[in-house]
């Protein structure tokens, strides 16, 4: 189940496969929780909101189409729920004047761009959570643009191990963000 990408997983969810559903919960809980918690300071409320996102996904599963991944759907649902929480649970909106200040831009930014920026930050934390060898091999390769050979000597492991670890790391990220 862990090997399935989001589209395959979601087809199973639409066929009422609850194991697939629980794999989806495993896959997205942490990153969604962090997204919510950055805006909803109370952890209990954040967890409630997280639960509601999955509940509504289950109820809406036949009405949703996804292209590559579920994350746009999940994060936008999170946005609606966080805004709803802000209206109903917060007596006063903090820094309300920031919301009211109008934006003057040459061309409007799309929501996808804004979301992508935030995801980049969250992905970095995801890389932090990888097992040590995988993390080192992956960051040296992608961030420092080092060759496989150099990484192998730097980490004192075989080139094959470096290759294996990088492809594992890509698989790891792909599963979470594809």
């Amino acid at each position: 189940m862990k090997q399935l990408d989001d589209t395959e997983l979601f087809i199973r969810i639409q066929a009422d496969d609850r194991y697939a559903f629980s794999e989806l919960v495993n896959r997205y809980s942490d990153i969604l929780f962090r997204f919510i918690q950055r805006r909803v300071s109370c952890t209990e409320d954040s967890e409630d909101i997280l639960q509601e996102i999955f509940v509504s996904l289950w109820h809406q599963r036949l009405n949703i189409t996804i292209e590559y991944s579920l994350y746009p759907y999940l994060f936008k649902t999170a946005k609606y729920k966080i805004i709803d929480w802000t209206i109903n649970e917060q007596k006063k909106i903090v820094r309300a004047e920031k919301l009211l200040a109008s934006f003057q831009r040459a061309s409007p930014t799309s929501e996808d761009e804004l979301l992508a920026k935030e995801l980049a930050v969250l992905i970095d934390t995801e890389i932090e959570k990888m097992p040590t060898t995988m993390k080192s091999a992956f960051s040296l390769s992608r961030k420092e643009s080092m060759s496989i050979k150099d990484i192998a000597s730097e980490l004192a492991i075989s080139e094959q191990t470096v290759k294996n670890n990088i492809s594992l790391a890509l698989g790891w990220l792909k599963l979470r963000f594809k």
Binding site: I83, F103, L114
Partner: peptide
């Protein structure tokens, strides 16, 4: 745009 920028900021 106002809401989105506020939300993602």
């Amino acid at each position: 745009q106002q809401v989105l920028h506020w939300f993602y900021a």
